[in-house]
Design a protein around this nucleic acid. Sequence first.
DNA 1: GAATTTACGTCAGCCTTGTTGACTTTCCAA
DNA 2: TTGGAAAGTCAACAAGGCTGACGTAAATTC
Lengths: 166, 166
Amino acid sequence: MAEGNTGGENLLFLTDEQLRKGIEAMFFAYRGFTADPDRILEGMDYGRAHHRAIHFIHRSPATTVSNLLTILGVTKQSLNRVLRTLIDDGLVEARVGREDKRERNLYLTAKGQELERQLSDAQRARMRAAYRAAGPVAVQGFRTVLEAMMDPEMRRQYQSLREGER
Amino acid sequence: MAEGNTGGENLLFLTDEQLRKGIEAMFFAYRGFTADPDRILEGMDYGRAHHRAIHFIHRSPATTVSNLLTILGVTKQSLNRVLRTLIDDGLVEARVGREDKRERNLYLTAKGQELERQLSDAQRARMRAAYRAAGPVAVQGFRTVLEAMMDPEMRRQYQSLREGER
DNA sequence: GAATTTACGTCAGCCTTGTTGACTTTCCAA
DNA sequence: TTGGAAAGTCAACAAGGCTGACGTAAATTC
């Protein structure tokens, strides 16, 4: 069982069994991760897709539709359906671009911000509990592994919003 | 930056901003996590739901349909649709239970194992690269935080398959 | 031994959220 | 002024969730 060292170190954490556990950890944890917002949204006419749109509009106010398309990785038809309902319901405002009038700059209305707060409060509460239970060293490792797991393009998206953190 | 103690401590890792980064890390990383199997499955008649079923049947051969329902957290109608195609296509075998003949014990056929290997090779490759890049300490933290993020019942499911690891 | 419960399968219908393809309108830039 | 990018929309479709209803076989309980 003492396989693999690369340069003297112990690589037991790279066994297939360890990797499988990591895979299942992602699967089960992601369920928990989405559970609370899903619960809030069920009953309303919204779903996870609406949550994602709201999250990223909140994070980057004045973002354009095509920015959002890139970040969310869906087709514009798919996003449009979601955005349409959010705009019609008065949660999101789409202002014609100042510089380029083809673009739409997206903003949350007061009502949209209220729902955003409700959703992210729930999601942060779970995250906070997990972070607190695990401790800062574990959190650092958590972030490091997740970042290494992203596709390069997504990693760029992720990192491009780091200004002002840490 | 030397944070972290518990009791008189610096809790900077629990700021809303840090939590938001964690939330987005989960979002982007999960995309990467599923990307490779998704690519393999597209074109075949299968999707992520088939992958999940195959994974957990592989992990726990002879598992029953209701076990699988609990683990996957879907309805039997939904699982049945997926299982039906896997059985018809000869990837999964459902044997009548020895002790309780109402139950069906599920197994991967040789063909099913072949697809499982293909899928998990791809997923493990990404996991392995991320683990290697992050290092064993980070991996430990990654697992700790994910585990803390699960719903208690899912955590039990996750942990109940730890026999023989580590 | 009869009644009830459990495990599984299946039919029918619905919803969300993803997809393609085709087309229009607006409007920037060469 | 014209080509092409950005955005929006219509239509049709698929995967994979869901509920409700019903059937059958087997186990369990009364």
